[in-house]
């Protein structure tokens, strides 16, 4: 490419746009559907039920230990499909780029997206690029949407219709890594901790659990608002409650230190590679075993269970054995975390 920076012309639809599409997007995202460069991606699907989702990514900074905005943009949408019980297949990608962004940075992001999509086994089949004047966006914003196919027997996973008292609650590893990494990188406090975002696509891990025939009753990825938000959503207005034990939550030592220092409760801090799964009690050990054998579930743990008490509410047994309620986060803890 001729210039080192993104210019307004790169979004004009003219020569510069074509240059960007050919030398960057098509080059890295390459697949038979995208290669046709039709106005819409033409897809063949043999399924009665589809899952369809979209998300926009505005994380600041765009590069951080453990990933970048591109990795989140793929993983976030893949995970939204996977936790709905679907097999993710196709993604769209839309970029809003601030004039002056370094092409080398954009290339790094696009490369990561391609790698991540490849790893997850999904195709990026359509996309769009807009460039806005300097100061009208912050480097780059990305929107992705995704389509996945859904087997009939998985339809109730996202609503949790089949959850019942006695079911176990499992999380695939340590919490709060992503949020703390972003805070640490922003460096407003001149604090830097040795931490890394957990950003990852979870579809293969989830597929393994599904393949084992274990009864998954409910799944959701715990992103903004942290695990606490998902726990609250799980029991809200239901005829059951839940209880977790703080001692069963995995929090990495450096992450815990930062949370102590900043007054954050790890339960409320964002993750980008964590799924909360509710499974039938008899399947819990099997699910745990499958997760432990996978890199993304090495530290998986049963954190609690569904109970026939305090309906509609989640309670946590604190580290010291006391009890308190789990509530949703009020207001914004930290803007632009993903």
């Amino acid at each position: 490419m001729k210039t080192k920076q993104v210019l307004l012309g790169h979004g004009s639809g003219g020569e510069l746009s074509h240059d960007l599409i050919k030398n960057l997007f098509v080059k890295y995202f390459d697949n038979p559907i995208l290669r046709k460069q039709t106005d819409s991606a033409l897809l063949e699907l043999k399924a009665e039920n589809l899952a369809y989702t979209t998300d926009s990514y505005v994380v600041d900074p765009i590069f951080f230990p453990g990933g970048n905005i591109g990795k989140i943009a793929i993983a976030g949408t893949v995970n939204d499909l996977a936790v709905s019980g679907a097999k993710p297949l196709y993604l769209s990608v839309g970029f809003i780029i601030e004039e002056g962004m370094l092409i080398s940075e954009l290339e790094e992001i696009v490369k990561t997206m391609a790698e991540e999509a490849n790893k997850a086994g999904v195709m990026i089949v359509t996309g769009d690029t807009k460039v806005v004047n300097r100061g009208k966006a912050d480097k780059v914003f990305i929107n992705t949407s995704g389509i996945g196919v859904l087997e009939k027997d998985q339809i109730d996973i996202s609503t949790g219709e089949n959850v019942k008292v006695g079911d176990k609650i499992i999380v695939n590893g340590s919490i709060a890594d992503h949020g703390v990494t972003i805070i640490s990188e922003r460096n407003e406090l001149n604090l830097r901790a040795d931490v890394k975002s957990d950003c990852a696509c979870l579809n293969h891990l989830i597929q393994k659990v599904k393949d084992s025939g274990s009864q998954i009753k409910f799944m959701r990825d715990a992103t903004r608002g942290g695990l606490a938000t998902v726990l609250t959503e799980l029991v809200d207005e239901r005829e059951y409650g839940l209880e977790i034990d703080e001692l069963n939550l995995v929090v990495n030592e450096n992450v815990r230190g930062m949370c102590e220092l900043l007054g954050f409760d790890p339960l409320y801090v964002a993750n980008e590679g964590k799924v909360l799964m509710v499974v039938a009690a008899e399947d819990a050990d099997k699910v745990l075993e499958i997760m432990h054998a996978d890199e993304l579930g090495e530290k998986a743990a049963i954190i609690g269970e569904i109970v026939d008490e305090h309906h509609g509410k989640g309670w946590v047994t604190t580290q010291i054995g006391g009890k308190r309620i789990i509530d949703m986060l009020a207001g914004e803890q930290l803007p632009r975390i993903c």
Partner: peptide, 9 residues
């Protein structure tokens, strides 16, 4: 006191 659930103990 509230965060650790001390009153219940």
């Amino acid at each position: 006191i509230q965060k650790f659930g001390i009153p219940a103990l």
